[in-house]
Write a protein that binds this DNA or RNA. Structure first.
Lengths: 190, 190
DNA sequence: CGATTTTTTGAATCATATCAACGTACGTGG
DNA sequence: CCACGTACGTTGATATGATTCAAAAAATCG
């Protein structure tokens, strides 16, 4: 839980003792590369804090293809937050791209945690505020950039993903086909 | 401030007395239709709670066109949250689509409010959590729907906007040209 | 009512998708 | 540790959804 404690410490001071008290609200799960943490349509009601590894969040489109909407790596919280808040079945799958271990906070545990340790409201307020700001920025980029520009932006701003994530998932995340990504790369290499 | 008090009451119990204590952290601003609350590039560091009316959030693209990325109406918080969190110049403009009045919370006031009245962390945690969930859902829709489907989805799910917002802004928000929206409408009416 | 803003039309063009086929690489069992 | 099979990446031809531009028509505002 070291990584989570450090993450909380970015936003507020938390002592060893206090952290060990709240540790009981969390649990662990690990998956090998390509295994699913969650499949679309399942009951879920959890948030994941990625301790190590990398996952993609995706859904199946009408045409049967898997659409990746997000990646999450170390020190990011991820979930299907709409179904989390409404306690509905998940609309997304979450799948390990590498061997991955996560810290789980269930909806119940979260609610109890926040009642018993109100200072954790500050932490989650900050986490969600930051996530929302990032999401608003991402929406801006979706409008601003052509698909080709989006690839260059992604490559330049998140180089580690280019290493860690297969091309067809990057293409999906960027909203185009693997074939088109191939074409962009061909042009830009030569 | 009645509308804000009611909004807070959706998430936690707040007494008249307590609310009147925190009211000093907020201020008001009103604008007529088509006036700007904020122009891209200005210092901002505020969050707006829309009390009445409707605004659009937009930026100028490379080609010089105004790109609307969001609307906000009564009882929604809005801002450029990335520049808000980093205290940078705004990357967006905010403009009244109708005569609009907003409740302002500056970054300074927000920080003081949260220190002095920690229960407000719960309110903002809930606000940002909900906003992030909605944003994640919107990103899903951006991937899931064709532009034509996006229009029908918007029309069916937010009918009041079709009334209140001119077509060229809806087209911009949905990510296509007014001409194309016109074409979709022609097809679907006949 | 005239002036301006918004919406519609149609033709030409462009960015990206689709499909099918081929090349490459990588992991898994023998 | 090699070989094979499956998964991934590339190529080229064709198709399509959406844009651009210019102009006309309709709606709104002072």
């Amino acid at each position: 839980m070291e990584s989570l404690k450090n993450h909380i410490n970015n936003y507020l001071e938390i002592s060893e003792t206090t952290f060990s008290e709240i540790a009981r609200f969390f649990s662990y799960q690990g998956k090998k590369k390509k295994e699913y943490f969650l499949r679309e349509g399942e009951e879920f009601n959890k948030m994941f804090f990625i301790e190590s590894g990398c996952v993609n969040i995706s859904f199946i489109k009408d045409n049967g293809q898997e659409q990746t909407i997000d990646f999450a790596i170390e020190n990011w919280w991820t979930s299907d937050f709409l179904s989390f808040s409404k306690s509905e079945k998940s609309r997304f799958s979450i799948r390990a791209i590498e061997d991955t271990s996560v810290i789980i906070l269930t909806k119940d545990a979260k609610e109890k945690l926040l009642v018993e340790y109100p200072f954790m409201e500050t932490y989650f307020r900050a986490v969600f505020e930051k996530a929302y700001a990032a999401s608003q920025n991402r929406i801006k980029l979706l409008y601003e950039l052509s698909r080709e520009e989006a690839y260059f932006h992604f490559r330049d701003n998140f180089p580690e993903f280019i290493q860690r994530v297969p091309q067809y998932l990057i293409a999906s995340f960027l909203g185009f086909t693997p074939e088109y990504l191939s074409e962009i790369r061909k042009k830009s290499i030569s």
